[in-house]
């Protein structure tokens, strides 16, 4: 049985959901060890030990891992590498930043953003913005993978009873310093794991106009996303972006408002279960992937939809 090391993403308090999807993919390949490197992250290590499918947790507590600095985490993974046949992380910005550094230090080819485990060395992944699906096989002795979180279910957070082992930190790099972060505060569900997503595009016309998207999202208990055009125009922050190079989402319901449907956007949402498109241009490519299309002025339709949802809630 292959030994697979999954690098946990966390904020020293809570395990990130991307890691749970990574565990599921790793469990299809072998016995899973979860590495929790942090500072004062004992609660994360405890939670990690309860994740179903995790055989062992390796906990490293050191100031070097207080923040997710790729240089320091990569050195740690490389120091532990001998005991493992594969290295796995969720394809979040954390994982995308880290895994290639690990792979190169170990002279391994990486397979990015896998959507299916075909065999012990063989995986499916999308190329060309989701317009081609490649089956890729590595000839290397070990695996280095990032995992598309929407393609694998999250491992259960209860039911596991892994052993917890602590190991020594590796001396941190003095070539890099973490200076700080700006997190967009939101009461809404997280974009990549929300059951419903409402996204706005260039058709919104301004950042202020996003209030109508937010009002609809509130009625649906949805996360708010955006197309690249809306982010580039400065309507909303970068972490709203859904698409080839932004976030990949696959909710039960995706509502695209004023989004034309460039292939780069479709790459990030076309695995949604149900897609609704609201756009004034009936030729917009978004209608080619939408289950339900509504042609018209979004500034009329979206508030109507919000009110109708409100009314139907009040009635039930």
């Amino acid at each position: 049985m292959a030994e697979i090391l999954v690098v946990a993403e966390h904020d020293n308090a809570k395990l990130d959901k991307a890691t749970l999807h990574g565990v599921t993919a790793a469990a299809a390949l072998g016995t899973v060890t979860l590495l929790v490197a942090g500072e004062g992250a004992a609660a994360v290590a405890e939670a990690a030990a309860k994740v179903a499918g995790v055989a062992k947790v390796v906990h490293v507590d050191d100031a070097a891992y207080a923040e997710p600095v790729a240089e320091n985490l990569a050195s740690l993974v490389v120091a532990m590498a001998d005991g493992y046949d594969g290295f796995v992380v969720g394809a979040s910005t954390f994982g995308k930043n880290l895994m290639p550094r690990v792979a190169a230090l170990l002279d391994l080819a990486q397979i990015s953003d896998i959507v299916e485990v075909v065999g012990p060395k063989s995986f499916k992944r999308y190329i060309y913005a989701g317009n081609a699906l490649a089956t890729v096989e590595t000839r290397d002795a070990k695996l280095a993978l990032t995992v598309r979180t929407t393609a694998f279910p999250a491992a259960a957070t209860e039911g596991g009873s892994a052993s917890v082992e602590t190991v020594q930190a590796v001396a941190p790099s003095d070539l890099v310093k973490f200076l700080g972060r700006e997190v967009s505060a939101s009461e809404r569900p997280e974009l990549t794991s929300a059951r419903v997503v409402v996204s706005g595009g260039r058709g919104m016309g301004s950042g202020e106009n996003f209030v109508i998207v937010e009002a609809l999202a509130d009625q649906l208990g949805a996360a708010v996303g955006a197309s690249r055009a809306a982010v580039d125009a400065g309507y909303v922050p970068n972490d709203y972006q859904v698409g080839q190079t932004g976030k990949i989402v696959a909710p039960e319901l995706y509502v695209a408002v004023g989004i034309s449907g460039a292939i780069q956007h479709l790459a990030g949402m076309k695995d949604s279960k149900v897609i609704v498109a609201i756009n004034k241009d009936e030729e917009a490519p978004i209608f080619q992937v939408a289950d339900y299309g509504l042609v018209g002025d979004l500034f009329t339709i979206v508030p109507q939809l919000t009110e109708a949802l409100k009314a139907s809630k009040a009635a039930s």
Partner: peptide, 26 residues
Amino acid sequence: RLTYVKVEEPPKRQAGVKVADVPALL
């Protein structure tokens, strides 16, 4: 180091229907 065993067309999503108005959509 990686062999591209196969490159295929991804499953295509079928276009759905256009609805007339908000009540029909709901």
